[in-house]
């Protein structure tokens, strides 16, 4: 259903929804910076094997705890220096980006898909199903995310897969609640009723008729969920409950760097900086998306 007028008048051709969204989005400088940084980090992650100067696990026994290239005693071979066993920090950070983004993507996708399904079912069918699903979500929400994730990892055992599973479960209720709330506002609108009258089945109503109209808040939540996933994953790695050494995960890199805090500042500084910048980028972009997608907040 395009809105272009056939009569040749001076009426401006309405923007496509995407163009309208984009024009709002690029007005927000922070969001644009966030997006650029994310694109950059994704590029590094995808081409880590070509971009990284060294293999992330390769130990240069003659170059243990070398400071960054610009500092005194630095070596141009290792831009950001080396860690306690002589591994190149820059290469580990680049490969860590791959790990963090991938695990973030998995966590967000799993909780988003499951959350959408549960939320649609709860909102669409109502009654006992609704009560049961929402009670379950409330119980999960009553515990802080990190605490709940720690509890689940305590059961399953520390590993990167288990902590990913735990975090997917922890973020689930947010998507369930959001989807259900949007479904409830949409379900009694005319277009839904008319397709129901036209004989659309429950599945078609849920996924094809209603869902596309509920997506905006979900996209925003998923972007912000990415930053939470990366942050909490790093925290679990730092506590020794997430990724296990020698995986170059940012949080577990920090955990092993702790012992060098008095002697080698660079081992401690860079992994945290990259976590902060990535999380900040996703938060900036999430805020920008929310402003651009939600007409109620547009000013």
């Amino acid at each position: 259903m395009t809105m272009t007028s056939e009569t040749q008048t001076t009426v401006r051709v309405p923007q496509t929804p995407f163009a309208e969204f984009w024009s709002y989005f690029i007005q927000n400088r922070g969001a644009l910076i966030g997006l650029c940084f994310i694109v950059f980090i994704v590029f590094l992650a995808v081409f880590a094997d070509f971009v990284a100067p060294h293999h992330p696990h390769e130990q240069f026994r003659d170059f243990i705890l070398v400071p960054p290239a610009w500092a005194e005693g630095g070596n141009a071979q290792f831009w950001l220096g080396t860690d306690g066993v002589g591994r190149d920090i820059l290469s580990r950070l680049i490969h860590g980006a791959r790990l963090s983004l991938l695990i973030g993507l998995v966590i967000v996708s799993v909780s988003l898909v499951l959350g959408i399904c549960l939320g649609l079912v709860a909102g669409f069918f109502g009654g006992f199903v609704d009560v049961a699903i929402m009670r379950f979500a409330d119980i999960l929400l009553s515990m802080p995310a990190l605490l709940l994730a720690i509890a689940i990892v305590a059961i399953l055992g520390p590993s990167i897969v288990n902590s990913g599973l735990a975090l997917s479960l922890v973020y689930l209720p947010h998507y369930v609640r959001l989807t259900r709330a949007s479904v409830l506002t949409e379900i009694n609108k005319d277009y839904v009723i008319s397709s129901r009258v036209a004989g659309a089945g429950a599945l078609r109503l849920m996924f094809i008729v209603i869902l596309p109209n509920c997506l905006a808040p979900l996209i925003v939540q998923a972007t912000l969920g990415f930053s939470n996933a990366i942050l909490d994953m790093a925290a679990l790695g730092f506590l020794g409950l997430g990724a296990q050494p020698p995986l170059p995960e940012w949080g577990s890199m920090l955990a092993t760097a702790r012992e060098f805090i008095q002697s080698a500042w660079w081992v401690v500084t860079f992994p945290g900086l990259i976590i902060l910048m990535t999380v900040l980028a996703f938060n900036l972009m999430g805020d920008g998306l929310r402003d651009a997608l939600d007409p109620k907040l547009k000013q």
């Binding site: 945290g272 900086l273 976590i275």
Partner: peptide, 8 residues
Amino acid sequence: PIFWWALL
């Protein structure tokens, strides 16, 4: 990441 903030 507060664990890094603490270290800094």
